[in-house]
């Protein structure tokens, strides 16, 4: 059976999700921030986490964005193959949701229309939209606005297979070390291993939308996540980069098949304002 969905419903959902996600952290992130405050031992690190806790409370109470960089809107649509969209152009409907959400939610317009000419589009569009086709008749929407303090410190490396898992670890640690205070730690670290150049980057972005603290399914990847979280925290960068033992809240790794000649690794860093919200239609 074909299920019809009006694209206006997509617009409405995305508008609401853009606003919601910028005013309060998802449950998983809120929990991770609380745990971080308990774990942190550095004196300045503790102070920063205390300020971030207050910041979250103020944002919610006063309906003001958690961070002034309300991001470029990254949106994933997982579309059931039995869905038929009616009522307009799906891509335009997504952008309209972003436009309405960023206007009505008093969110910052941080997008320039051309990367070289750099004129602000003044409505935060276009979004970065990733669609995939899946079985079924539902549509899963993920809205994950991304700030560029942390986006700018993200890296991709095309390793040789001989560099193996040790090479992967090195790339992750180097990326976090180089980012230091710039990416607004404590971080969520999204890692994509395998695929092709662009697939690795996409995997790393998707890893950031996984509920924080939910481990990977494969045992060897899960073990690598745990090991890397420990190593990243041992760097001592700490909250705000001011020293401490909580540099990251989580390391999430997504892996995919790759070519016999390659080992792509992408590390997408996200700050403590790791915004992601999901809804299913």
């Amino acid at each position: 059976m074909i299920r019809e969905i009006d694209v206006k419903e997509i617009t409405r959902q995305i508008r609401d999700m853009c606003i919601e996600v910028n005013y309060s952290l998802s449950e998983d992130m809120a929990c991770a921030m609380k745990e971080a405050a308990d774990k942190e031992r550095g004196p300045l690190g503790k102070k920063v986490l205390q300020q971030l806790k207050e910041n979250l409370e103020i944002a919610k109470e006063e309906q003001i964005p958690i961070c002034q960089d309300t991001g470029m809107a990254v949106i994933f649509l997982e579309i059931g193959q039995d869905v038929h969209f009616i009522g307009g152009d799906l891509g335009q409907a997504v952008d309209e949701g972003v436009r309405q959400g960023y206007a009505e939610g008093y969110l910052r317009k941080s997008v320039v229309g051309d990367p070289l000419l750099r004129e602000n589009t003044k409505d935060n569009t276009p979004a970065v939209l990733h669609t995939s086709i899946v079985p079924g008749d539902r549509v899963k929407i993920t809205v994950a606005p991304k700030g560029f303090g942390s986006e700018n410190m993200s890296r991709i490396a095309m390793l040789k297979p001989a560099q193996g898992v040790e090479g992967v670890k090195q790339v992750i640690l180097d990326t976090v070390r180089e980012a230091g205070p710039n990416a607004c730690p404590p971080l969520a670290v999204g890692v994509g291993i395998g695929g092709t150049f662009e697939k690795a980057a996409l995997l790393s972005k998707q890893a950031l939308t996984r509920p924080v603290g939910e481990p990977a399914k494969d045992a060897h990847i899960r073990a690598l996540e745990e090991e890397m979280l420990e190593k990243v925290n041992a760097l001592g960068i700490g909250p705000g980069g001011l020293g401490g033992n909580v540099t990251a809240l989580a390391v999430h790794i997504n892996a995919y098949a790759t070519h016999i000649a390659g080992l792509p690794v992408a590390v997408n860093l996200c700050c403590h304002v790791n915004r992601h919200v999901k809804r299913v239609l």
Binding site: L52, E54, N55, I58, P65, C67, D69, L242
Partner: peptide, 13 residues
């Protein structure tokens, strides 16, 4: 000086 990154709601006060 550094202010705390990501504390925009708090700092606005």
């Amino acid at each position: 000086f550094a202010a705390v990154g990501g504390a925009g709601a708090l700092l606005s006060r």
